[in-house]
Amino acid sequence: MAHEHKLEIFRGLWKFKSNTQKIWGVLAFLTFVTAIEVVLGIYKPEILMGQILGMKGLNWIFIILTIVKAYYITWDFMHMRDETKGLRRAVVWTGIFLICYLIFILLQEGGYIESVYSNGFIKRDF
């Protein structure tokens, strides 16, 4: 129910006394993650620029950190953590499944068209 909150994040590693405290804790965590992203974005360490699975390592870090942030916004700010399993799964898995599917098709096709541009007979360098 709406009035009962699970007052812990990181699987119980960080416990809070009240819901208000938990909110500030989550804010601290989100700010920390954003700060890491900004610092990495400005300095772009050379080690992370290598290609991993078709993308720069740094970009994978950004995407993973974004999903981490999205998780805490949904779970703690939107109180998904306190909803029933049924509602949570209905909303979250539907979204994840359709979005992954969409991303797969579009990026796959984008890469294909790029290969046509670079290997085919289409001239763009004028």
Binding site: L87, V91, T94, G95, L98, I99, L102, I103, L106, L107, E109, G110, G111, I113, E114, Y117, S118
Partner: peptide
């Protein structure tokens, strides 16, 4: 509950846009 499902559909709209952005970006990746 309806707000949650509205948000879900809106999330799909936005991911459609962002995936289209990704498409164009992969198309002109160089």
């Amino acid at each position: 509950m309806m707000m949650w499902f509205f948000i879900l559909s809106d999330a799909l709209t936005f991911s459609g846009f962002l995936a289209a952005y990704g498409f164009s970006r992969f198309k002109f990746i160089g």
